[in-house]
């Protein structure tokens, strides 16, 4: 199941903090879809550290990601819902 969070209108460090909170609460088997204003490079190391995997793509003016637990089923790639 998809969960969605839009942090594209928030000032740092809110986007990073909110995304970290949301992925920690992510139910098993689900994935989090994130809309961000930019590619969040600092987030990657933290997600990897926490045992998450992700895909991401530049879309329109911003950046979108799908994040899931590494030992869960991967989220569908963009373009597939």
């Amino acid at each position: 199941m998809e969960h969605f969070v839009d942090v594209s209108q928030l000032q740092p460090p809110a986007p990073l903090g909110i995304v970290l909170d949301r992925v920690r609460q992510l139910p098993r088997g689900d994935y989090l879809h994130i809309r961000h204003s930019r590619e969040p490079f600092p987030l990657y190391a933290m997600l990897a550290d926490m045992g998450f995997a992700w895909i991401g793509a530049h879309r329109g003016d911003g950046f979108e990601m799908r994040v899931w637990r590494r030992d869960d089923e991967p989220a569908p790639p963009f373009g597939v819902n």
Binding site: Y44, A45, A48, A53, I55, A57, P77
Partner: peptide
């Protein structure tokens, strides 16, 4: 598309 192969010590 980025599949996140970055190292853990990305930030100095």
């Amino acid at each position: 598309m980025n599949t996140g192969g970055l190292s853990l010590d990305q930030a100095p």
